[in-house]
Design a protein around this nucleic acid. Structure first.
Lengths: 227, 227
DNA sequence: ACAAACATGTCAGCAAAATGACAGTCCAAC
DNA sequence: GTTGGACTGTCATTTTGCTGACATGTTTGT
């Protein structure tokens, strides 16, 4: 793929804001691009973690399995986000699974190339640190939710976040498409599929949302989805 | 305090392994030392986060409060650990509380000084990244515990970790002193005080542990405390 | 067009653990 | 010493939301 195209692809990762064009060029040269379709697995636990990934389009989920086959999703990532960062955080194998939720375009870069870049650019290092900090905060908030909130509160406040980050604002509310399956929401909120179904229908009964497999529509303001 | 003493104090933080003596000297010069006694608060949420702390001795807990006054402890830190790292992760206020659990000696350093050092030493940057990665993994494991394990499993596997990291190996098992209150354990494991009490007494009945306010003794091998 | 696989809707029953209440115990400070 | 406050021990009650079961509905691939 032409470097120029790659360069374009690497725009809109805030992490690279303020980097010199020369640096960006170097980044682009070291980046490979791939299309991944739904349900593809990008990495498994125990896989060597040599690569850092930039998500250009689509959605990826990072999740874990328990011994007895239960699933919990740690993060749902959208365009502009980075994953596989354990590579640059001194781990040589992954401990999560990264799976494509919506057909994705992923840029991949070897961790050594990225580390070389970091050494050359304190600016980049700074951005990486910020990004990691943000990740850390997100997961701490996740813990807080698990501990303080009830199952149904977790579901509604997940919907809030989901609509906020992935939805489009309309005249009379918000629209997100496509929507997730109830099981996917259950895994994200550490609840049972049936509970998700129930909460979703309750919200629909109250005329706060409308949903189907293809979309989620929020009628009115975000703060109706308060825990 | 003499730089020499400070220098000594800064040993045994793995983060500084492999740093040049010159660099260590610079570190020491920028570090201030403080003694904090039990129940002292080192920082509150919303406090400006300008400082990074190195825990030389004692124990610190990092915790959060919910609106309705519940508590959950995110981490229990012992000697050799770093906290307040949000300072170098691009956050300008804290979002947790750091409180002394056992009388502590804390080294404090201004975040800008530390960042200057990081720029000069890619080595240090690397160590910091590793440390953050380790922190991230710990908290992901915390999430996993919350989701997959039952209350009593969380308590036993907490005891496991506690004994492993803070205990002394004896001929016939392990000994940790002092011990925590049941409420503290409850906050660490997201359970109720009464449940902790029950599990503790069950383990004592099975003659696996012996405990009082002052100590926790594990009779025999660590793996008896498996979930 | 059809079947197989997957997703949703609903309900009854159950279990884990939180809550609340209170007595007993330890400890530290005066 | 005595007293107040914090910590521990125990129990009965209640709740949340998970489990399993099953019917219905929808999508996908051939």
């Amino acid at each position: 793929m032409a470097e120029k195209t790659k360069l374009w692809y690497l725009q809109n990762f805030n992490m690279f804001d303020g980097m010199s064009p020369k640096m960006m060029m170097e980044l682009a040269q070291n980046t490979s691009m791939q299309n991944n379709s739904k349900k593809e697995i990008i990495y498994f636990p125990e896989d060597a973690s040599n690569t850092i990934y930039f998500l250009k389009a689509g959605k990826i989920k990072i999740y874990r399995l328990s011994e007895d086959g239960k699933t919990t999703t740690l993060q749902l990532l959208g365009p502009g986000e980075i994953f596989g960062e354990s590579a640059i955080l001194g781990q040589d194998t992954h401990d999560n699974i990264a799976e494509v939720v919506e057909d994705a375009v992923v840029c991949a870069m070897d961790k050594r190339d990225f580390q070389d870049l970091m050494e050359k650019s304190p600016n980049l290092t700074m951005s990486v640190n910020k990004f990691i900090g943000w990740r850390l905060r997100k997961i701490q908030a996740h813990v807080e939710d698990l501990v303080f909130k009830s199952a149904s509160q977790r579901i509604t406040s997940f919907l809030h976040r989901y609509v906020e980050t992935f939805g489009k604002k309309m005249v009379d509310g918000w629209m997100v498409r496509p929507f997730l399956t109830h099981q996917e929401i259950a895994d994200l909120t550490a609840t049972a599929r049936q509970t998700v179904n129930q909460v979703l229908n309750e919200l629909a009964d109250k005329d706060i949302i409308k949903f189907s497999r293809r979309f989620l529509q929020l009628k009115g303001d975000l703060d109706q989805l308060e825990s």
